[in-house]
């Protein structure tokens, strides 16, 4: 019995490393001298930051047994609102307002989920459309340029030393996420609600409150992802985050978080998002057409996710 559980723990933790190294080694072989270079690695870290950050919040939502399909819309609204605010306010205030937008969107998802008893899948499928529509009408599909260089440097295209600020933000958000997840009563309650909502309720955990905050955190990190997008691109468009939902959810699941809730790690999610990031980068470098990239990416994601799910189902 002891042996059995020992095996379970190790296997599920290894899956993410296996996927990580398969993708890393695979592209290094397919793209000699192109993929595994310092420049390209820094590039991957920059490209992946937006997914990594949003995936931190998604880890909370999925661990609590929920899901958020509306992150793309939140990312887009936040990018635009932050860009517009930067025209009037200093960087810090604009960023805080941007995060506030994510808070409101996530909280709305949480309220619909807990007060109206609508499953998260349906709630966020609906709000996703609402948020995207809102983003499109915010500037009437116009892009907004950002000329605030401080903002662009510290949240996007700059480096500190040789390390991209985007990667530093990824690390900061991941570490904060990991600590909240592993070291606070709230994190333990999220695990409990996803593990067994009934047991959590009987244990005196306010399950609605926990689900509300898991969704709200997911909104906040999606918003932060939008802030990073706009700073990296020195402007905002309604298309930011458009196709990220699948990548974010895949990153979380490849990272070892149980899709049915109750188990996971935020560090695993970071590795999972890097798997996705390498995939996006490598397929592009291979010179595949956009259409072929989409097909290949979809297939690899399904394979990677099935790998991490299969191990869990075998218990």
């Amino acid at each position: 019995m002891q042996r059995q559980s020992f095996k379970d723990i190790n296997l599920s933790k290894f899956i993410v490393y296996i996927s990580f190294f398969i993708v890393l080694i695979g592209f290094s072989i397919l793209l000699p001298g192109k993929f595994l270079t310092v420049n390209n690695i820094l590039n991957i870290l920059r490209q992946t930051a937006m997914i990594s950050v949003a995936a931190v919040g998604m880890t909370f939502a999925i661990t609590a047994g929920q899901i958020d399909l509306s992150t793309g819309g939140v990312t887009a609204i936040t990018a635009l609102v932050t860009a517009l605010m930067l025209q009037r306010f200093p960087t810090v205030i604009a960023v805080l307002i941007g995060v506030g937008v994510g808070f409101i969107c996530g909280a709305l998802n949480g309220i619909l989920l807990t007060k109206c008893r609508i499953p998260a899948f349906i709630v966020t499928l609906g709000t996703s459309s609402v948020y995207v529509g809102f983003a499109r009408s915010l500037t009437n599909l116009e892009a907004v340029t950002i000329t605030n260089e401080t903002f662009n440097h510290y949240f996007g295209s700059g480096n500190i030393g040789f390390i991209p600020t985007l990667f530093l933000w990824t690390v900061v958000i991941t570490v904060i996420g990991q600590y909240v997840y592993k070291k606070t009563p709230f994190g333990r309650a999220v695990l409990a609600v996803g593990g067994s909502e009934s047991a959590a309720r009987y244990s005196g955990i306010n399950t609605d409150k926990i689900k509300f905050w898991a969704m709200t955190i997911c909104g906040i990190t999606a918003a932060f992802s939008g802030i990073l997008y706009s700073a990296r691109m020195h402007g905002a468009r309604y298309t930011y985050g458009e196709n990220d939902s699948m990548n974010i959810i895949a990153a979380v699941v490849i990272g070892g978080t149980s899709f049915s809730g109750g188990k996971g790690t935020v560090f695993g999610t970071l590795l999972g998002s890097l798997v996705i990031g390498m995939l996006n980068n490598g397929l592009l470098l291979l010179g595949l057409s956009v259409n072929a990239q989409m097909i290949a990416r979809g297939i690899v994601i399904v394979l990677a996710v099935s790998l991490s799910l299969r191990e869990k189902l075998s218990n």
């Binding site: 409990a192 067994s196 109750g262």
Partner: peptide, 8 residues
């Protein structure tokens, strides 16, 4: 169902 969380 309600006493334990068996995966924990």
């Amino acid at each position: 169902k309600s006493g334990i969380i068996d995966i924990h």
